[in-house]
Design a protein around this nucleic acid. Structure first.
Lengths: 207, 207
DNA sequence: AAACAAACTATACACTATTGTCGTTTATAT
DNA sequence: ATATAAACGACAATAGTGTATAGTTTGTTT
């Protein structure tokens, strides 16, 4: 099944490959996954796979992008109503996300960021920087928005608060991945984050 | 130099090997280090190295043990004086530690715990549990101590606060390793941690 | 001082795993 | 039917592992 191909078809095929690869990465992480594993999962030959991707890091980056697309909406607050409950809600949702960690790419991501060539030539992977910045900016924006409408009175720079939140969430994910959520007690830690955030941004809506 | 050998000598030699290996692991991390690299750095032959260690994970575990010996005192507070300044001090010291991340084993450790066989059989490596628990307990103990002498009035369970601190520090380390400290702004994030901690434990000594 | 043996060197080897390439095959649009 | 390009899969190349062997060095023992 393969001559004179439409762009359509190729895009579609690539998406299939990415989805197969994603499954493998979730199962096996990044380091222990080989191109062969992806071929097997996708039911595609070596040559064909290599015609779509140059190497396994390339595959992973594409998986990342694909995954991010879906993920990106998660932090968009609605325009309506006070922001604090939405922020609170977002934090609470993290629990589900973190505790379902073995159904996500988190482990593979951590491995990738640590162990791929990424670590040696960060410059080749601007995507990672983008990612970090996009996320902090999204959080920061909510904080700024809340400030400008007078809902929040941040006690520290909103950028730093945003980074702080992200650091904490990343650390909690990593610890939880390594130790299991029984050990790290995700819920309690998240409520401490909420407590801290209240003090940090002083949302009006608290009684 | 080597007949009918003393235990002394062997221990000493092993220590040399471990120190050489440690250097390599700091430079190259865990995943990208081969036995050959260690041979080169230590100036030892293949056979000799293998007579000390069975494989590279074995080498790494020994390096870890060796490193921990030195590391273990870092969180012991002095018996004298109020605890808050000491805690504060400890947090501030993290900056130096985190920013010097490429001179430590942190990267190699993260790789090892993620990517070695560890991830598949956690039970074989109680080490990481121990480590995590030892650290949280050390922090928790300081908090409890401060509470019992009336210096702190924690607003949340001290255990959770301890875990919270550790999650944050781990996340900050990871982000900083990946992106560089220019990007993550370690200092600001740590002062947000301090701000949060003040609110969380209400130390008396603050004016 | 001669014999000994432990520790080491240097190198070779058999294996395994994986990569990326490349010539060939195959299905279909025209 | 044939030109086209996707898909196939054999292959050489690379890199590492752990074992094995022969030979060397050097303290210790007698």
């Amino acid at each position: 099944m393969a001559p004179k191909v439409s762009e359509e078809y190729k895009k579609e095929r690539e998406r299939e490959l990415i989805e197969a690869a994603k499954k493998v990465f979730i199962e096996k992480g990044f380091v222990r996954t080989s191109m062969q594993d992806i071929m097997d999962k996708a039911g595609i030959s070596r040559g064909a796979l290599y015609s779509y991707f140059n190497n396994i890091e390339h595959v992973f980056i594409e998986v990342l992008k694909f995954d991010d697309q879906k993920d990106i909406q998660r932090f968009v607050p609605s325009d309506e109503g006070p922001l604090w409950p939405q922020l609170k809600n977002w934090v609470e949702e993290q629990q589900i996300y973190i505790e379902a960690i073995d159904q996500t790419l988190l482990y593979a991501k951590a491995e990738f960021f640590l162990s791929s060539n990424y670590a040696s030539n960060k410059d080749n992977f601007p995507y990672i920087f983008e990612r970090y910045n996009r996320t902090t900016e999204a959080i920061e924006e909510v904080l700024n928005e809340g400030t400008s409408i007078g809902e929040f009175s941040p006690q520290q720079s909103t950028r730093s608060i945003a980074r702080y939140i992200l650091s904490f969430i990343n650390g909690l994910m990593l610890d939880t991945f390594q130790l299991g959520h029984e050990q790290t007690n995700v819920k309690d830690q998240l409520s401490i984050l909420l407590f801290s955030l209240e003090k940090l941004i002083n949302p009006k809506s608290i009684k």
